[in-house]
Write a protein that binds this DNA or RNA. Structure first.
Length: 857
RNA sequence: GGGGACGUGGCGGAACCGGUAGACGCAGCGGACUUAAAAUCCGUUGGCCGCAAGGCCGUGAGGGUUCGAGUCCCUCCGUCCCCA
């Protein structure tokens, strides 16, 4: 018998699919549509098995839905702007466009080799002017709508690389690349007004019933809606400043603790601080120190609390005899609320840390349930739990929620404050001082200000020959590019040299696939047909940013009339990573899996360096990374076992949402399955055509229809590992039936079914065996098998019989037998009867088709 | 500190609604084939007692609800993720 040869079989069928244009999606077809999309990759140049797993999952869904009669859209593109290309350009003096282009070519080849049923005619790359020009188009439309604006904003500034860093790029207060201590700087920035949609983005989560609960919760927390009080503390005595209002306005979510206030703190970026700094260099010096470190809340939280007593005093709003000092503090964020807080050290940990450091009073006003007012003290931990309000005049005795309401009502009645809803979500700063990104399509004119580039002049293309040899923005350094003519006054002007965050690029690509070559950014008719994406698949690391930005942009574009849907992704699945063990020599050097030989010595696994024979330490399975050298390339596996084995393995060993550990033993298991399937078809229908054992044939038909049902339901429930387990069982059943000489028609049905069930997972093999049994046409276009309930469900059930909850026997009963019939069978059963001697049956519980439990005494 | 998820054989995991725990795979052990090995195939493998029939225990720990709990509830321990 000839062994299955993936090297010959796989390319043959890929060519056949191409030839037939089998996976082209037809916009407007009357068949029901199904849009399945995996998060598009960054073209790093190397496909790793993590990609393979992600795309294999999408492909299972795509092939399954296609077979079920859906008109499937399954496209692929490239998230092609971003820093790695600039780094490569800086290190090797090459053009990022060329570098990216070469990577795309290489990765496209590798992706194609996976046999994914993609409609490649819709391929797009975000670095293509055809794409980013459309992005500039809608960016200007949102500018017109007021959803894009410019303001001074705080950014993470890396003084060495001379660039703005995203919060994620600041590690322990230092730039991830330069290691320089990051400063908070005020810079003119472009923002998208995502906060306009905060409430809708929050409400919309409730409709996403096919999203993981976890992701919805993360978005809810990220949006962070809170109810609270905006309240003004009036300055005590005469107004101390020229321009300031007559007080400091704070926002609090804990108005119930107002009587516990012992100070006011304003952000270093608060106008009050700015005014004080302007006339006092010492204050200015403090503010500079306070701005060191990153801008993320976590970092600000972790940083040491720094404060400056301004000497100013304000009156307590409910007790004009009390005066509170006004401090400038580094832990107060200008972007959240009003940029000023009142400090209640007893019931807020940050305030407590601050108060202890600067010797401010700590006044408890919430009494924990089991505590006594006379003895309760706050030491190093603020009390944030439930309790009764005390030390608080008119709030005394209330619980926290009632006290909040009472405090807000009083502030409103006195005209010094109002209840307010505040979101943690902040507007999205989208400008990057980078050369390899989508240029912001505006022109700065000394006379006319910020002028949009006229639509007819789009796209604003990146120039060729950018110089990335120095840090900073290559676009700004370009000798001529930025010189432009003002579209309004025709005077000399300058182009904006900022580019857009790559998250902007990825926030709408799914809406471009319906017609990737359309003249408008989005072809409305095509998008109306295809959107929303029915099934989106990607890593959970995008739970907040990418998925939230996409939801926002979809709404903004819908309001602009470019789209009809408001939610882009009806179904979301977050898949786990592919991990691998690590190997290192005694000396500590990491070794690649290919450099190590694993031997099973009895029950223990040992690893040896192939080159030297020395023992190697086997480490935990970890996320694949270059530094630990535990990366496995799909190409290597494809060379040995073929891509079908790789596809089966990455889906078989763990549930899709969980991490899977890559092991060579695992792929070999998948390879064995492929060979077993192949062998069954090779044995073929040589004998027993038509004739044969009828009983074995009927049994095989039962197995066949059970397999159809089980595999279908497993795929629908995203339980690919279970689907593959059922395939293993079905192959075993087919084999047994062959050995039992089951009748030929039953075997033909089984083999035809097997080919179709295995097709989503191992499409090349399936296509080959489909041909072997003489089926005509491409299996990729063949319909999914349908199970006959009469065969998929047994007509006789074995019901375990429990006595007092312990299994003591079983009875055979016809499917659907009533409780009474089953009970009769139970008592007729000798084994059961023997066990019931001398006891009284108190109760009989029959769960039809499931189980029987006898309660005895 | 807050929120969430998870914890099942030597390993990855299955058990979808509370109804036979351990499907399927890996590894192991025994065997067939072979001069031998690889490959392949067959058998076996949660623990304890027993020649066997069979029995007892068993889903991180402890408690609860229930005729019945891996699954639901409470407390604790551990791991991971998100927010801080």
């Amino acid at each position: 018998m000839v062994r299955y040869n993936p090297k010959a079989v796989e390319p043959k069928w890929r060519a056949a699919w191409d030839e037939a244009d089998a996976f082209r999606a037809e916009t407007g077809s009357s068949r029901p549509k199904y849009y399945v999309l995996e998060m598009f990759p960054y073209p790093s140049g190397q496909l790793h098995v993590g990609h393979a797993r992600n795309y294999a999952m999408g492909d299972v869904v795509a092939r399954f839905k296609r077979a079920r009669g859906f008109n499937v859209l399954h496209p692929m593109g490239w998230d092609a702007f971003g820093l790695p290309a600039e780094n490569a350009a800086a290190e090797r003096g090459i053009d990022p466009a060329a570098w990216t282009g070469e990577n795309i070519v290489r990765m496209r080849d590798e992706l194609k080799r996976l046999g994914l049923s993609l409609d490649w005619s819709r391929e797009l790359a975000t670095c293509d002017p055809e794409y980013y020009g459309r992005q500039q188009n809608w960016f200007l439309r949102l500018l017109e709508r007021g959803l894009v604006y410019r303001k001074e904003g705080l950014v993470n500034w890396d003084p060495v690389d001379m660039t703005v860093l995203a919060n994620e790029q600041v590690v322990d207060g230092r730039g991830w690349r330069s290691g320089a201590v990051v400063e908070r700087r005020k810079l003119n920035q472009w923002f998208l007004r995502i906060t306009d949609y905060a409430e809708e983005l929050l409400q919309g989560l409730e409709t996403l019933d096919r999203w993981p609960e976890k992701v919805r919760l993360m978005q809810e927390n990220w949006i962070g809606k809170s109810r609270g009080l905006r309240l003004t503390f009036r300055f005590a005595g005469p107004l101390p400043l020229h321009h300031a209002s007559d007080g400091v306005t704070v926002y609090t979510t804990r108005p119930d603790t107002l009587y516990g206030a012992s100070f006011i703190a304003v952000s270093p970026d608060h106008p009050l601080a700015t005014e004080l700094a302007a006339r006092d260099p010492e204050v200015a010096g403090f503010i500079a120190r306070a701005r060191q470190g990153g801008t993320s809340e976590a970092e600000i939280e972790a940083a040491e609390k720094l404060g400056w007593d301004t000497g100013l005093r304000v009156e307590h709003p409910f007790d004009s005899k009390r005066e509170l000092p006004v401090w400038i503090a580094n832990f107060v964020l200008m972007d959240y609320g009003t940029g000023a807080i009142f400090g209640c050290p007893a019931h807020d940990q940050r305030d407590l840390d601050f108060a202890r450091k600067y010797g401010l009073p700590v006044i408890p006003v919430v009494l924990p349930p089991a505590e006594d007012a006379a003895s309760f003290h706050v030491k190093q931990e603020a009390y944030v739990g439930p309790g009764r309000i005390y030390n608080s005049d008119f709030l005394d005795g209330l619980d926290i929620e009632s006290a909040k309401a009472a405090a807000i009502a009083r502030a409103e009645a006195e005209g010094i404050g109002e209840g307010a809803t505040v979101f943690r979500l902040r507007d999205w700063g989208v400008a990057r001082q980078r050369g390899w990104g989508c240029p912001v399509p505006v022109i700065h004119c000394a006379n006319c200000g910020v002028v949009p580039v006229p639509v007819g002049q789009l796209p604003v293309r990146l120039p060729e020959g950018l110089d990335f040899s120095q840090p900073g923005n290559a676009l700004a350094r370009h000798p001529t590019w930025k010189h432009a003519t003002c579209p309004r006054c025709q005077g000399p002007a300058e182009r904006e040299t900022d580019t857009l965050d790559t998250f902007v690029d990825s926030s709408w690509y799914f809406a471009r696939f319906p017609d990737p070559h359309a003249e408008p950014p989005i072809d409305k008719a095509a998008a109306d047909y295809w959107l929303p994406v029915d099934q989106y698949i990607g890593g959970v690391e995008h739970a907040v940013l990418h998925l939230l930005y996409s939801r926002f942009v979809t709404r903004a574009l819908a309001d602009e009339g470019l789209l009809s849907v408001r939610e882009p992704f009806a179904g979301l699945f977050t898949q786990g990573m592919v991990t691998h063990e690590t190997y290192r020599r005694q000396s500590g050097e990491w070794l690649e899996p290919g450099e190590v030989e694993i031997r099973n010595e009895g029950a223990t696994r040992r690893a040896y360096d192939i080159a030297t024979g020395e023992p190697v330490v086997i480490g935990e399975a970890e996320k694949m990374s270059k530094s630990k050298r535990n990366v496995v390339a799909p190409a290597d596996i494809a060379d040995t076992y073929g891509v079908d084995a790789a596809r089966i393995f990455v889906l078989s060993d763990s549930p899709p949402e969980r991490d899977v550990q890559w092991t060579s033993a695992g792929v070999e298991g998948a390879w064995r399955l492929i060979n077993r399937i192949w062998a069954e078809f090779e044995e073929g229908l040589d004998h027993a055509e038509g004739a044969g054992d009828a009983a074995a044939g009927l049994e095989l038909r039962h197995s066949t229809h059970k397999a159809i049902k089980a595999v279908t339901e497993a795929i629908e429930g995203f339980r690919f590992n279970s689907a593959i387990a059922r395939l293993y069982e079905f192959v075993a059943a087919v084999r047994e039936a062959r050995l039992a000489r089951a009748s030929g028609d039953a075997r033909r049905e089984a083999l035809s079914t097997l080919a179709r069930l295995v097709a989503p997972f191992a499409p090349h093999l399936a296509e080959e065996v489909w041909q072997t049994i003489g089926e005509s046409g491409l299996l990729a276009l063949a319909p999914w098998p349908v199970w006959d309930p009469g065969l998929a469900d047994d007509d006789e059930r074995i019901l375990p019989v429990q006595i007092n909850g312990k299994r003591r026997g079983e009875v055979r009963a016809p499917a659907g037998a009533s409780a009474g019939e089953v009970e009769k069978l139970v008592f007729e059963n000798e084994e059961i009867a023997r066990r019931l001697e001398g006891v009284t049956v108190r109760k009989v519980i029959v769960v039809p088709d499931r189980i029987v439990n006898l309660v005895v005494a």
